[in-house]
Design a protein around this nucleic acid. Structure first.
Lengths: 140, 140
DNA sequence: TATTAAATATACTAAATTAGTATAAATTGG
DNA sequence: CCAATTTATACTAATTTAGTATATTTAATA
């Protein structure tokens, strides 16, 4: 029932990029340092974020990273999905999974967990990075 | 973000006991067989449930297990707590944890995750085993 | 009261996942 | 061309989860 460390890092990275002035870029080393994430691990996470389109990269000297979409269109769920995959509170909420105990529609545990899972999903979708970045500014 | 296998098993075990006529007991071997859980692993889980008081055990021949409290007073959260510990979507929601990035009250990620965590907790508390047992009977 | 069917206690092993590292290649600005 | 940067792929280490083994204690009952 936990977000992985990697996913936590990813959230902080995206938040940092969201707070960056638009058009600006920042390189992996700076991200690693300011967010206290091991350098090589930072790079690894950034690649996943780039591949998913949430972040855009620029190669070569003066290269770096910036958000790939508007901050208000990136949600906590998006980042979590890219790093940890879909939120699945239990295996049985995955449609492909066959638990073998009862038909899913007859399993009360399954039914309740599906409901909670949906709820978590919806809450995570509500929280976008424009909002998060704004919150952080307010408190400075 | 997943319930462990052990916790899933525990939920099924408690549900089975909740469906048992009151006063009746069932032994670990039968539980293991009907729930398709490895025998020794079943025993291990049962000990945790007994130690927490959710389940009561009877030693010796004709021994076995039954619920330690009324089914309507046992919730999904109780069982999950006993096996997996508190639901913590992220380390930072634990009060003891110091993330070092910002003061928690100033961290927008922390604030949002706390909110979601509370919501999950409350939902899990709503679901008791009398209800779950009832649901299962209905579908038979 | 001896036997047997159970739970209890403690310790161990194996598998899977998570976290993090290493090295070499490709790209770009100056 | 050189230095700064990302990209690609593969590897290792640490931690957690899943499951096993063995010896002991307890209680019913024949």
């Amino acid at each position: 029932m936990k977000i992985t460390q990697e996913c936590d890092y990813a959230i902080r990275i995206v938040l940092m990029l969201a707070k960056l002035g638009s058009g600006k870029r920042v390189d992996a080393a700076s991200i690693a340092e300011t967010q206290s994430i091991p350098q090589r691990f930072t790079v690894k996470i950034l690649r996943k974020l780039v591949q998913s389109g949430l972040v855009t990269s620029f190669k070569g000297a003066k290269g770096g990273y910036q958000l790939g979409k508007k901050a208000e269109t990136i949600t906590l769920k998006d980042v979590m999905w890219v790093i940890d995959g879909p939120v699945e509170i239990n295996k049985c909420v995955n449609e492909e999974y066959i638990c073998g105990r009862t038909e899913k529609q007859d399993c009360p545990v399954h039914c309740q967990l599906i409901h909670i899972n949906d709820m978590i999903d919806k809450e995570l979708e509500k929280i976008d990075f424009a909002y998060l970045a704004e919150q952080e500014k307010d408190s400075e």
